[in-house]
């Protein structure tokens, strides 16, 4: 049976993890490679690096980080942030990333999803969508959630699927950082609409929230950042909780 994936996301700025686990035995807590190794050892199903560097120059360090991670970590690695063109995707995949996550660049240029999925395969193209509630609908935001695009979320999701995205990373901006749980209405509508898998993101604050993401939201994978980094609970605890609730997770 296919298992629900638990994915920790690491924010990386200028080659350093800005939010990270405070493990005492970690030699360098700011080193993304060290963090990825630990997450893999404790049972993460995939790892996500989100590059939040401000400049293109600084982003180049991500290529080296990905290459070093690929030497040590043998679970899928997704890299997002600052991907503008097909050459950026090629460089990341070549250095050892398994998937790239594309957000603003897909809004500016729809062909990027189409061209990259045709060239490299849909399996490595994750379309990231930042959604914000407006009255009774949801609107897509770009540029790290700062810009209202005016595009409706559900039509954009269908478009991304049709263009060839292999999965969707859906973040609720209203819930992100609140610890009030996923936006289940947004999530459910999206997973009902799409045939490709949806990774739920934004708002998880307790173990019950993970469960609801699957049972009420229909998510194929659950992504979280701060609850893991600040060690509020571990990946093992999340998996044990889900397993007890009869939601299949990988425990081997």
């Amino acid at each position: 049976m296919l298992k629900t994936r638990i994915i920790p996301c690491l924010d990386v700025k200028d080659g350093r993890v800005v939010k990270g686990i405070n493990f005492l035995d970690l030699i360098d807590a700011g080193d993304p490679v060290e963090q990825a190794k630990i997450y893999s050892e404790v049972g993460a199903d995939e790892i996500c690096f989100l590059d939040i560097s401000a400049s293109i120059e600084k982003r180049k360090t991500m290529i080296n980080i990905v290459a070093k991670t690929a030497e040590h970590v043998f679970i899928p690695l997704t890299v997002g942030g600052g991907i503008n063109e097909i050459e950026d995707i090629r460089a990341l995949l070549k250095s050892g990333a398994d998937k790239v996550s594309i957000n603003t660049a897909a809004i500016l240029n729809e062909n990027l999803i189409k061209d990259s999925s045709q060239r490299f395969g849909s399996q490595c193209i994750v379309a990231a969508v930042d959604a914000k509630r407006h009255n009774n609908d949801w609107i897509v935001y770009s540029h790290g959630g700062t810009k209202n695009t005016g595009i409706k979320v559900f039509s954009w999701l269908e478009k991304l699927q049709q263009l060839g995205a292999g999965e969707i990373l859906l973040t609720s901006m209203d819930r992100d950082g609140t610890k009030n749980g996923f936006d289940l209405e947004l999530l459910k509508k999206s997973t009902d609409l799409l045939t490709i898998p949806v990774i739920a993101s934004g708002g998880v604050g307790n173990l019950k929230h993970f469960e609801e993401g699957v049972t009420k939201g229909g998510a194929s994978a659950l992504l979280a950042a701060s609850v893991f980094h600040f060690a509020e609970f571990s990946i093992k605890e999340v998996k044990k909780f889900l397993n007890d609730k009869k939601i299949p997770v990988r425990i081997n």
Binding site: M1, L2, K3, T4, R5, D45, S122, Q123, G166, E167, L194, T195, I196, P197, S220, A221, R250
Partner: peptide, 11 residues
Amino acid sequence: NLKLPHMGWNN
């Protein structure tokens, strides 16, 4: 009623 691609961990 299952997603495609078949993506993730399976036994």
